[in-house]
């Protein structure tokens, strides 16, 4: 009886908290859009900062014009190409760094340094090397993502529990079994985190490189709109891109939670 009562009380409290949170989120969005509309119509002008409605119209125009999907696809394909290159180069580097002190020292400065270089520098370098074209953004994405992937793989390898490896040996398991059941599962969460983190920056650098020099893609469209002094279109392309990327981000987060569900249990213990 008493237990049922407290349980009910707890669930009511939880429901109350959830309601408060939800109302906060709705209010937050409302306030944001309201403030935006207010700023654009009262503080600035519709010309210098177009309001939400105007941007919505611009989005509508872009969507109905039809070719927007091509620009998104090309931008995303460049991002993933660069990303694939980063994984191909970053994984072996990370593997070496995690395994041997020499390679760790060898790559450390370059990898950490490469990760703190401003994106504009990568965009510039890509332009100088490849000029305007498909490969520039790919290179920029590869350059900026590689360090994160390498460092995460290295960290994963260093964190492999040697006691588990000893256990495996004591029970006479083969190297291949240890690789499959111990090494790979320990590295995977780190590799995944690396992918997720670097994805968050990869697309920005990709678009930036397109802004600097490209003849297609979302970045090119943003640049094109800017040169035509059409702020609504600048904002429309940006917001659409952000929405798409947040969606991909969320999907990756869900996948990550599912893949590594054993981890949450470990933490809860």
């Amino acid at each position: 009886m008493a237990e049922a009562a407290t349980l009910e009380g707890t669930s009511r409290r939880l429901a109350g908290a959830r309601l408060r949170r939800a109302s906060g989120v709705v209010l937050g969005w409302g306030a944001f859009v309201g403030l935006w509309a207010f700023t654009s119509s009262v503080i600035l002008t519709e010309f210098t900062l177009p309001g939400p409605l105007k941007v919505w119209d611009a989005i509508w125009v872009i969507v109905t014009a039809g070719s927007w999907a091509d620009d998104f696809l090309i931008s995303i394909s460049k991002t993933f190409m660069g990303f694939a290159i980063a994984v191909l180069i970053g994984t072996p580097i990370g593997y070496l760094m995690g395994r041997a002190g020499y390679w760790k020292a060898f790559f450390h400065d370059g990898v950490v340094g490469a990760g703190s270089v401003p994106g504009i520098v990568y965009a510039m370098m890509a332009l100088v090397i490849f000029g305007i074209g498909y490969l520039g953004p790919v290179l920029a994405v590869g350059l900026i993502s590689m360090p994160f992937i390498a460092l995460n793989v290295a960290e994963g390898l260093e964190g492999v529990d040697t006691d588990l490896l000893k256990m495996s040996k004591a029970f006479g398991r083969s190297e291949r079994q240890s690789l499959r059941h111990i090494l790979i599962p320990s590295i995977l969460p780190f590799a995944f985190a690396g992918v997720r983190l670097s994805f968050a920056i990869a697309w920005k650098v990709e678009a930036l490189t397109e802004v600097f020099g490209s003849s297609n893609g979302v970045g090119f469209q943003i640049r094109f709109a800017f040169q035509g002094f059409s702020i609504p279109r600048v904002l429309a392309w940006t917001l659409m891109f952000i929405a798409l990327l947040l969606l991909i981000e969320r999907a990756l987060a869900v996948l990550e939670r599912w893949l590594f569900r054993w981890r949450t249990w470990e933490q809860e213990e």
Binding site: V112, S116, G119, L151, S198
Partner: peptide, 20 residues
């Protein structure tokens, strides 16, 4: 020693930066 973890923490921090 070369401090990998220190570098890593920074990298993660930096990884969330809007470079555009």
């Amino acid at each position: 020693e070369v401090d990998l973890e220190h570098g890593l923490a920074d990298m993660e921090a930096i990884a969330k930066t809007p470079f555009l």
